[in-house]
Amino acid sequence: MSTVASSRLHPRPGDKPPVFVKGVNDGLLFLLDEECPMDALLEHLTQLLHGDTASVFDGPVVPVSIDYGNRELSAEDARRLLGLFMRVENFLIREWGAHTAARRALLNTRGAMTGQTIHKGTVRSGQRVVSDGDLVVIGDVNPGGEVAAVGDVYIFGRLAGIAHAGIDGDERAIIAAAELRPLQLRIARTVSRPPEGEGWPPRTFMEFAYLGPDGMAVERLQYLSALRPR
């Protein structure tokens, strides 16, 4: 599984491109950003499929899945979007919807992820621990230390450094810590800093950070299974 073209026709610094193209088993999955304005999305897709980069998609017939996420589409919008794909000659449209099988398969591969790393000991300033699956740290992550995982990050200790979950772009990844007072939290491509000013209230429960509808959010670990049912 690899990214065929993470289209960046209009590089907007700090902004994610409105369309992500992923290679899945035998075809292509187009993930359309659910928040960007409809016009920008249409313009971007037109450029991507029929502009300078169109030749990328040339070749034999390829099955295509298109996932528009939670966007509310009018009949007109749907016709225009779908029309752009149908005009590409070698595209065989297999799926069109909000929660396509291709998208679910892409995200579910997390469960089958190979590496699961358990790191025992303190992650100190200047050290970086990376896992290609979920990462469990038994110990503290000190300021200047960094932990990163393709999947979730669980820290049985104090997170005072930087944690990055879902480094390959999985927005459902979470970061949990017995004491969550990070310098920075990163999930997929979202970076967040704790609010400035007042100190940290003492806590006696484990918390986790996740990407909610309004960006980074923190909740008690008890609610993890409610938010991320398996």
Binding site: R124, S125, G126, Q127, N142, P143, G144, G145
Partner: peptide
């Protein structure tokens, strides 16, 4: 001091 503690932490790792 934070700076000295940070550097000490780095050194302990090394």
């Amino acid at each position: 001091e934070h700076t000295a503690v940070r550097d000490a932490d780095r050194v302990i790792g090394l």
